Simulated scan of single mutants.
Amino acid sequence: MNEANRFGIEEEYFLSDAGSRGIVRKVSPKFFAAVQDAFPDEVQREMLQSQIEVATPICESMAQARHSLSTLRKGLAGLALEHEMLLLACGTHPSAVWSRQRATEATRYDQIMRDLQMLGSRNQLCGLHIHVEVKDEDERIRLMVRILPFLPLLLALSTSSPFWQGQRTGLMGYRLSAYAELPRTGLPELFADAADYRSYVETLVAAGAIKDASYIWWAIRPSDKHPTLELRIADSCTRLDDTLAIAALYRCLIRHLQRRRGLNAELTPAARAIAAENIWRAQRYGIHGGLICGESRTMRSVPSLIDELLGDLADDAAALGCKAELSHCRTLAAKGTSADVQLAVFEEARARAGGQAAGLAAVVDWLASETRLDGVALSPGWQPAMRGAA
Rank of each mutant, 00 (worst) to 15 (best):
T268N: 11
K211R: 06
R221V: 05
P227F: 06
K211N: 07
H226G: 08
R251C: 07
L267T: 07
A206H: 10
L240W: 06
D212E: 01
G208Y: 11
R260H: 15
G208D: 10
R259Y: 11
A213S: 14
Q258F: 08
P222N: 07
D224Q: 14
D242Y: 00
Y215F: 09
A270W: 13
L231R: 02
C252E: 05
L229Y: 01
I254F: 00
L249P: 05
H256D: 14
I210R: 14
D224F: 14
T228D: 02
C237N: 09
Y215E: 11
N264W: 12
A219Y: 10
D241M: 02
E230T: 07
A234E: 05
R261D: 15
Q258W: 09
D224W: 14
A265R: 13
S236A: 13
A270D: 14
I210S: 14
Y250N: 07
T238L: 01
G262C: 15
S223D: 15
L263Q: 09
A213W: 07
T238Q: 07
L257M: 12
T243K: 03
A245N: 14
K211I: 06
W218I: 00
P227N: 09
A234P: 03
R232S: 02
I246Q: 03
R259F: 12
A207P: 06
A206M: 10
R239C: 02
Y215I: 00
T243V: 12
L244F: 09
A273C: 09
R239N: 05
G262K: 13
A248T: 04
R239S: 04
I254P: 04
A234N: 07
R259W: 13
I210C: 13
A213D: 08
K225S: 05
Y250K: 06
R255M: 13
S223R: 13
L244A: 11
L257P: 12
L244T: 10
S223T: 12
S236K: 00
T268V: 08
A234T: 06
A265E: 13
I233D: 01
